[in-house]
Design a protein around this nucleic acid. Structure first.
Lengths: 214, 214
DNA sequence: GATAATTTTGACCGGTTGGTAAAACATGAC
DNA sequence: GTCATGTTTTACCAACCGGTCAAAATTATC
């Protein structure tokens, strides 16, 4: 009997894991491009190269897929901020944080858009995670920044809004990619775009925080 | 006979205009919160306080409503950038541009989210407007900024990425409102939020562009 | 108040949605 | 081979989708 759906079993075989991964990959494609409600199981199934009931064999509901994707992204998203080191030099810490976030926009634009879609629509599934783990981490790092300001290492500024501005400027290149491309035109939107953005943002934030370039 | 649908008639009566406005208001609510594909006519009709066929009497299709909303937003969105004056002082021009964009995020968050939703999902309806009018306007203002840099009035920087960073930082407070609120907590997300953000962003950009505070 | 134009509604339609049932199919252990 | 387990597919469902239609209700005109 078909009691043990793949999604329920504790031990997952190699095949199950591969198929689930293939489905999640397809779901990420679809969800990030069309939003949760705008996506259909048929689209995901087709993108994964299997039938709809087969997809539902591995994930009991559409929401289960989405939930798992969101959980992953949330975890990945916090990573660069965790690396933010209180004992490091402000210049290198901020510079590498910007760069890492920008790299994520370049390398994982679908994940960024999935997250943006979720937040835009009121974050119905992850409000708790935002108010819990995310807030705690940001609070912690805000203290670090505040300490730097007090020590005169960087200009006085609101640490929360600093973090927001780094988030928004870097994610902009993934979430608003279409607009960026349209404005820059094809000649400027290619390979050099990433380096241009990185240089600009590093200059803006370091100078904006009163950190002299070394 | 019911030949003259309200949407088609050239001269619109007072009542027709009022109803259409009421529908657009409701549609903005729904579209901005759930995206185009995630919204249903029933939701819009209910929000507008009328029956679905009645809504369709004033707008022939769901897309017609959305299109009109997008067109409006697009026009409104370009306004602050148009006001950017080549003959003004860089300090006051940039400062007031930031402030105006921030005010729009505060006063028209639904419009911002509608626009963000559209871009996020690949801007299927407005690619031409982005590549046309928007790009032209940005190109023009980029020249102004570049001239300021050449004249030594502001630090050398890529004008396009400067504009992107102002867009993203200011719109962040509308589009990612849920996240901002979650991180700041209720105590900090109230009335003072706007002024805090304005002060931070003005400091960041003016200092980042090497413009001394007056 | 009769009449014509406009507005509103309830009933309805074909297509699509997320999800199910059950049987067919594959796979591996013995 | 056979039998239990795990996988895939076909056929299907009720609910919902955007949109139509014709009749009813309202409003404007005289």
């Amino acid at each position: 009997m078909a009691i043990p759906r793949a999604a329920q079993t504790q031990r997952r075989t190699r095949i199950q894991e591969e198929k689930q991964e293939r489905i999640l990959e397809a779901a990420l494609d679809v969800f990030s491009a069309r939003g949760f409600r705008g996506s259909t199981l048929d689209q995901i199934a087709e993108a994964a190269g299997m039938s709809k009931p087969n997809v539902l064999y591995y994930f009991r509901t559409k929401e289960a897929m989405h939930r798992q994707l969101i959980d992953r992204v949330l975890f990945t998203w916090l990573d660069p901020l965790k690396a933010f080191d209180a004992d490091g030099k402000p210049e290198s810490e901020i510079r590498s944080y910007i760069r890492r976030k920008l790299e994520m926009s370049r390398d994982f634009p679908r994940e960024s858009r999935l997250f943006a879609n979720e937040i835009l629509q009121g974050a119905p599934h992850i409000e708790d995670e935002l108010k819990g783990p995310l807030k705690e981490l940001v609070d912690e790092k805000a203290q670090v920044i505040r300490a730097w300001a007090k020590a005169g290492k960087i200009a006085k500024c609101d640490p929360y809004h600093l973090i927001f501005s780094i988030w928004s400027t870097t994610q902009h290149y993934a979430d608003f990619d279409v607009q960026v491309r349209a404005v820059l035109g094809h000649n400027l939107s290619g390979a050099g775009r990433f380096e241009d953005a990185a240089r600009f943002l590093e200059d803006l934030f370091l100078r904006g925080l009163g950190i002299p370039k070394t």
